[in-house]
Nucleic acid binder design. Structure first.
Lengths: 349, 349
DNA sequence: TAGAGCCTGGACAACGTTGTCAGCGTCGGG
DNA sequence: CCCGACGCTGACAACGTTGTCCAGGCTCTA
């Protein structure tokens, strides 16, 4: 029976079943505390015979080192936090996985949370992670003011923003070329003869949404096409609103002949609308979607590499921790236009 | 300047920028240590005036409580671990998110990791989480022997297995009705006149794969259809193998007229194969897939509710922690057959 | 006005681990 | 045979927080 059995009696809130500690192991093996520590951490300077005895005791007691105590002593937690919008969104799965792989390669665990696109919840999460003393943070910002992070960054928490830039602070950022990607996507539609092109995107306060809209406007302007207000719809991306927006653009006296959609969720909804629509309408979407190639017609998209975003950000994070990195930087990853048919439809009229 | 500035000098490995501690706050506010603790934790017994002074000091120093130390003292970490196969798999996104929401409702954070379907990596992850002293674990097992968890469970780590049962230990399990779902899916094909029905699934050592195969066999047997070995293909679900398996079933003297696919990854690959195939072939897949309704024909599936799996498991976990729960239980959630066309195709011959 | 009781605040130990440092024994060279 | 060097081990303090317990000052009542 471990020596520390008394513990729970004293802390009624604690339901923990009295885990053995190094002290217990030391007592059982008949060695000093520090020797156990040495064995557990693979430090040199322990006789094979002593090591065996200690290992035996560890085995017998089912000892497992308490990392909380370790962290307290060492200052580093070997864990990083990831705050994103929604784990369930297929765009964030691969991103998240990529971050995890890099973390794993550096011996770190990943704690993650969804902000649900809510600035307060983002802050709450980030600060909770800081309280846990994560070594670093990968943040997909929901809010647009991150000054609350300043003390944390000053205190040494490595921080990288992904997908969208940070607000009001100078920090590393990894983003896709949202502007260029959207511009090229819209150009593609123009090249196929479209002039009345609609844009359905996310709320304009979201940086990516704004950038993609800018890409759309630029492509139109470059082609000398004046943009009607009725062709642009920005707002929450729930199916209801997107559906209504698409239907409005597609009806009326001067309906659009093509639609550029601002992200995967919007694209999916618009595909559904177009499937019910009589006339064929061209479509290019930002973000690739699964099975896009098997739809009729195949869906042309501006693809961003979610895994590369995550990987790049995480690698940068660990370089910050290494001390290899000095000045914050903005890294922009290219997007790729994947043509599959839907963007190549000619204008109907 | 905080009093504890000296710290890093003494621990050169520590790159942390000397965060202020309660001691620093106390000194600055001119109060005792415990008073700061009381303010930070909202405990009663502090004058408004004192509280104000403390809050001011906290603000000025950018203090944030160190949860590692707190955990060490309190025994509970308010965090739970989730070990799944692959965060990037669209099936696990919603599951993961559901677990997160429940955790959040209980004030806990979520640490998660991917086992990559590797038993050793699963164990490594789980034990790392235990070392962090997570309060509980939600595990989607990759391995089939979980006796290594016994000391942890005994030590009080709440544990729930999801999607697949635990191996050799008695623990809570939340699974879908894999057997019944697959049986009904295959029955659906039989009802539409098919007799030569293929089954392509995951490695048979994976419990869900085995159960779904059993469902297939039972449906066939109930209908009095002898099953040819060539109709069943089990193994890794990478596109290469699945593609080959499908092509083999579809060629030869007695090709199958319908295929039942064992999970979402297999389904997607088979859809691609069938798209290139001359004759129409009926298809029912286990797991729903996005846009399945928009394909030609729509893909009929046996859907499981990933979010419900996660939610149920997480809720059970917290009930274990409450002490509301005693005996481990096995909970089975129903599946739902969603008919969309591909399962209703008549046999070609 | 004294005593009881309450409210506020602070000293102290403990949580489990690791870094420092000193002690002890052995071994080889002078 | 002695002395220094080296290898192994353990005592001890510290990491930052919280629970316990006590002291001092206040109010209220008898």
């Amino acid at each position: 029976m471990p020596e520390t059995t008394r513990r729970t009696d004293r802390f009624p809130g604690t339901r923990y079943g009295n885990r053995p500690t190094m002290k217990d192991v030391a007592a059982r093996a008949g060695v000093g505390l520090k020797t156990v520590s040495r064995v557990v951490n693979g430090e040199p300077g322990v006789t094979p015979e002593t090591e065996r005895r200690v290992q035996e005791a560890i085995e017998a007691l089912g000892f497992r080192r308490n990392d909380s105590a370790r962290v307290l002593r060492k200052g580093r937690t070997a864990s990083i936090g990831l705050v994103l919008e929604d784990l369930a969104d297929p765009f964030y799965g691969p991103l998240s996985r990529a971050v995890e792989e890099v973390a794993r390669a550096h011996g770190a665990l990943l704690i993650n949370g969804s902000s649900a696109e809510d600035a307060d919840r983002e802050q709450e999460l980030v600060l909770a992670l800081c309280a846990r003393r994560v070594d670093g943070l990968v943040v997909i910002p929901a809010g647009d003011d991150h000054r609350y992070l300043e003390p944390e960054i000053k205190a040494g928490v490595a921080t990288v923003f992904v997908d969208r830039p940070a607000g009001h602070i100078d920090a590393d950022v990894v983003v896709s070329d949202n502007f260029g990607g959207a511009r090229d996507g819209v150009r593609h539609l123009i090249a196929h003869g479209h002039r009345r092109i609609g844009f359905i995107g996310d709320m304009p306060r979201i940086h990516t949404a704004a950038e993609r809209l800018r890409g759309y406007r630029t492509a139109m302007e470059d082609a000398g096409i004046p943009v009607a207000d009725a062709w642009m719809s920005l707002g929450v991306t729930d199916p209801e609103r997107v559906r209504r927006a698409a239907q409005e653009m597609l009806s009326g006296p001067e309906p659009v002949t093509a639609i550029f959609t601002g992200n995967n969720r919007v694209t999916v909804t618009v595909i559904r609308v177009l499937a019910e629509h009589a006339r064929p309408v061209a479509l290019v979407g930002f973000d690739d979607i699964e099975l896009a190639d098997l739809l009729q017609p195949g869906v042309t998209v501006v693809a961003q590499d979610a895994a590369a975003l995550g990987r790049t950000a995480a690698e940068r994070l660990f370089r910050q921790l290494d001390g290899t990195l000095i000045a914050p930087e903005r890294i922009e990853l290219p997007t790729r236009l994947i043509t599959r048919g839907s963007g190549e439809l000619p204008p109907a009229d």
